[in-house]
Amino acid sequence: MKTVDVALGERSYPVWIGAGLLADSARWRERIRGRHVLVISNVTVAPLYLDALARGLEGFTWSSFLIGDGEANKTFANVGLALEALGKLGATRDACVIALGGGVVGDLAGFTASCWMRGIDFIQVPTTLLAMVDSSVGGKTGVNLPAGKNLVGAFHQPRAVVADIDTLDTLPQREYRAGLAEVVKAAAIGDVPFFDWLEAHADALSLRESATLTEAIARKCLYKAGVVARDETEQGERALLNLGHTFGHALETAGNYTELLHGEGVAIGMVLAARLSERLGMAREGDTHRLVALLERLGLPTAMPEGHSPERLLSLMRLDKKNTAGTLRLILWRGVGAAEIVAGVDERDVLAVLG
């Protein structure tokens, strides 16, 4: 097992990564301070892992709340139902929400916990690779609106992250590959040795080799933990973690959250950001080729789905949270390991890349 610590003073917490962690309840039970627990999961994950989690909840007053599977279920309506479930449980201010599932479950559960009595504890138990390496760490929570993804949310840090890699055994191949996009993203932003390592270990990662996978998760979480510790509420450096997200979120929204998985949108978005960087004279074509080659070796898409209007995608990109004063503010790069925030990007250049 590997442990990564997210250093935030009194709100610091561990990220545990390894096999058999669901059964190791003595480790995570001590992070629960009260007696009420609401487990939020979805209809796909709960039949697989809720019983194992429940064995560790003996002695607590607990119940579960399940949502449907997929991004389309990350809604205010489900937050309302989850809050009602906390009310029925009689949850007090020392209650705890446990998020058992992928990024959708984690985002919704964290947002629910941030709302109940103005903020109660929650624990992340991610069961997808994407959630293990990204959304479970850092305290970003939220829900979607028809206008765009994650437009409503709060920063609310978990008490712990329990990343049991055994749960990845039941993860479909497409979702597993989508999680690898977030691993590549960290290396592309600011870790050249990690990018080199990923190129050398791409085949082992594709085969889900346990030791290689554990190392990749830990290195990604360690990188993100450092960024979060320096810029918790995304006032500067943390925005770099959104490389590819402005493009990717627009593609996800345009496809009604059913056409692309989040990691697939990020993969395509990183390539579009790299190509825009080329167009603006910031980066070399060779770096884009290197990024595309790694993503394709990991089985990820690198080209936009057909049928989306560039103008429609641009209109969705204008709603991105990083924008200021009506101008586009994108995360671009100067090559592998050198991302930066670029304000005032000309929309004509963006349209050219989208076209």
Results as ranks from 00 to 15, higher is better:
Asp5Cys: 14
Ala7Phe: 14
Ala7Pro: 13
Ala7Trp: 10
Glu10Phe: 00
Arg11Leu: 03
Ser12Trp: 00
Tyr13Ile: 00
Pro14Gln: 00
Trp16Ser: 10
Ala23Tyr: 05
Asp24Cys: 11
Asp24Val: 10
Trp28Phe: 10
Ile32Gln: 07
Arg33Ser: 15
Ile40Met: 15
Asn42Ile: 02
Pro47Glu: 04
Asp51Val: 07
Arg55His: 13
Arg55Pro: 02
Phe60Ile: 00
Ile67Asn: 00
Gly68Leu: 00
Asp69Phe: 06
Asn73Thr: 14
Phe76Gly: 13
Phe76Arg: 15
Val79Asp: 01
Gly80Tyr: 10
Leu81Trp: 12
Leu81Met: 14
Ala85Pro: 04
Leu86Val: 03
Leu86Glu: 04
Gly87Ser: 12
Leu89Gln: 10
Gly90Lys: 12
Gly102Ala: 12
Gly102Ile: 03
Val105Gln: 07
Gly106Tyr: 01
Leu108Pro: 04
Leu108Lys: 10
Gly110His: 02
Met117Cys: 09
Phe122His: 06
Thr127Asp: 00
Leu129Phe: 02
Ala131Gly: 11
Ser135Pro: 08
Ser136Gly: 01
Val137Asp: 02
Leu145Val: 10
Leu145Asn: 11
Pro146Gln: 09
Ala147Leu: 15
Asn150Phe: 07
Val152Tyr: 04
Gly153Ala: 12
Ala154Val: 06
Phe155Lys: 03
Gln157Met: 05
Val161Tyr: 11
Val162Ser: 11
Ile165Gly: 05
Thr167Leu: 06
Leu168Asp: 01
Asp169Met: 14
Thr170Asp: 09
Thr170Glu: 12
Leu171Glu: 05
Leu171Asn: 06
Gln173His: 14
Glu175Leu: 12
Ala178Gln: 05
Glu182Met: 06
Val183Glu: 02
Ile189Arg: 04
Asp191Ser: 09
Asp191Val: 05
Pro193Glu: 05
Phe195Met: 06
Ala200Pro: 02
Leu207Lys: 15
Ala211Asp: 15
Glu215Pro: 08
Lys220Ile: 14
Leu222Glu: 14
Ala225Thr: 03
Gly226Asn: 02
Val227Ser: 07
Ala229Thr: 11
Thr233Leu: 13
Thr233Ala: 15
Glu234Asn: 06
Gly236Glu: 11
Glu237Met: 08
Glu237Trp: 02
Glu237Ser: 06
Ala239Gly: 13
Asn242Ser: 04
His245Gln: 02
Phe247Trp: 06
Gly248Cys: 01
Glu252Asn: 09
Glu252Gln: 11
Ala254Glu: 08
Gly263Ala: 04
Glu264Gly: 04
Glu264Tyr: 07
Gly265Gln: 05
Gly269Asn: 01
Val271Ile: 06
Ala274Arg: 08
Ala274Glu: 13
Ala274Trp: 11
Asp287Pro: 01
Arg290Trp: 09
Val292Thr: 11
Ala293Thr: 12
Leu298Tyr: 04
Gly299His: 08
Leu300Asp: 01
Met304Trp: 02
Met304Phe: 04
Gly307Glu: 03
Gly307His: 07
Pro310Val: 02
Leu313Asp: 00
Leu314Ile: 08
Leu314Arg: 09
Leu316Gln: 00
Arg318Ser: 13
Leu319Pro: 10
Leu319Gly: 13
Lys321Asp: 09
Lys321Trp: 10
Lys322Cys: 11
Asn323Asp: 08
Ala325Tyr: 13
Thr327Asp: 15
Leu328Asn: 05
Leu330Asn: 07
Trp333Gly: 09
Trp333Arg: 12
Trp333Ser: 13
Val336Thr: 09
Ala339Leu: 09
Glu340Gln: 13
Val342Ser: 12
Val342Glu: 08
Arg348Ala: 15
Asp349Gln: 15
Leu354Ser: 02
Gly355Met: 14
